[in-house]
Design a protein around this nucleic acid. Structure first.
Length: 309
DNA sequence: TTCCGGGTTA
DNA sequence: TAACCAGGAA
């Protein structure tokens, strides 16, 4: 390890930072306008989800539950309903489990260290790194799909592969990270933003890229651009994921809790109506069972379904 | 490795 | 049509 070697970012940080300051999207959780908890909520909502879809959900969510303590006291039904059609609703339950852990065990303040963050439900390597960098200003390499793609193209001249991040990709991210903590935060954000807006997966806009003149991928003739980098996905139509979504959406649309003597218990969907949601009875019942196992629904003794209290 | 939503884009 | 998306967990 050569301590005197300049990080890889040195050759491109000036034009990249200028681009960032001129083109960064004005997202509501950026530029110090929210709390670390608000940053965490934005990161969880953004997992496998485009930012443009996240913004309205984040604003509504934070207006109702601005901190971990308030979210900890919500009912599951409220949380699942507020998650709406963002997708992967297990993220909503994990976020609330996380809120309860933070409120009960951490004095309603997020841990400021990697191990403490990754120990929380729903927080893995990416989200922990992002919170440390973006909310706390710590110097840590963030490795997400955008950063993997940009660093691989820019410095190695090849496409990154699908699947989990490799140790080599983490090493590259660490070698690229500026030494100065404040600059490392800008670097993470700028590289990620470049990947989202310019250096996109299918159609990178190299003609407007601020670091095109230093890009190994462009110099090499953009090898492999457009080739399939991930394993063929299962089709969505007819999958368990679609069926689960249909069932959950039906429960979300039920009349809300009347706040009577049955606290937290909303209306339920009768079995007869449940069976109309999907033709394949076996698949429907399997999906209902898996939703129940995930804690996303409750199965009543009479076979009707409802969102959990 | 596979499962977990649902919307957008080329 | 199908890849892709600020991933996490088993």
């Amino acid at each position: 390890m050569n301590d005197t070697a300049a990080p890889l970012s040195a050759s491109v940080s000036t034009p990249l930072f200028a681009w960032w300051h001129a083109n960064a999207r004005d997202l509501p959780w950026r530029f110090g306008r929210t709390t670390p908890w608000g940053v965490l909520v934005s990161e969880v909502m953004s997992q496998q989800t485009q930012m443009s879809r996240v913004v309205p959900y984040w604003e509504g969510w934070m207006a109702v539950w601005p901190d971990a303590a308030s979210l900890a006291h919500a009912s599951k039904a409220e949380v699942i309903t507020a998650w709406g059609r963002l997708g992967y609703p297990r993220r909503a339950l994990r976020l609330q489990e996380c809120a309860r852990a933070v409120a009960d065990e951490c004095g309603d303040e997020l841990p400021r260290d990697y191990d403490g963050l990754t120990a929380l439900p729903g927080i893995g390597d990416y989200t922990a790194s992002a919170v440390l960098s973006f909310a706390f200003g710590e110097r840590i390499a963030v490795v997400d799909t955008n950063i993997r793609r940009v660093l691989s193209r820019l410095f190695l001249g090849v496409e990154s592969r699908g699947g989990a991040a490799s140790p080599a990709e983490r090493e590259l991210a660490n070698r690229a990270l500026p030494e100065d903590a404040a600059r490392s935060v800008t670097w993470n954000q700028a590289v990620m933003e470049l990947g989202a807006l310019v250096c996109t997966a299918k159609a990178p806009a190299c003609d407007v890229c601020p670091v095109a003149h230093r890009c190994a991928f462009l110099a090499a003739g953009r090898p492999g651009l457009g080739e399939r980098r991930t394993r063929p996905r299962q089709r969505f139509q007819g999958t368990d994921r679609q069926v689960r979504g249909i069932v959950l959406d039906a429960l979300r649309k039920l009349p809300g809790d009347v706040r009577g003597g049955n606290a937290g218990a909303g209306a339920s969907l009768p079995r007869v109506q449940v069976e109309r949601l999907w033709k394949d009875r076996a698949q429907l019942d399997a999906c209902i069972a898996s939703l129940d196992e995930d804690g996303l629904i409750e199965i009543q003794p009479d076979g009707s379904l409802r969102l959990p209290a």
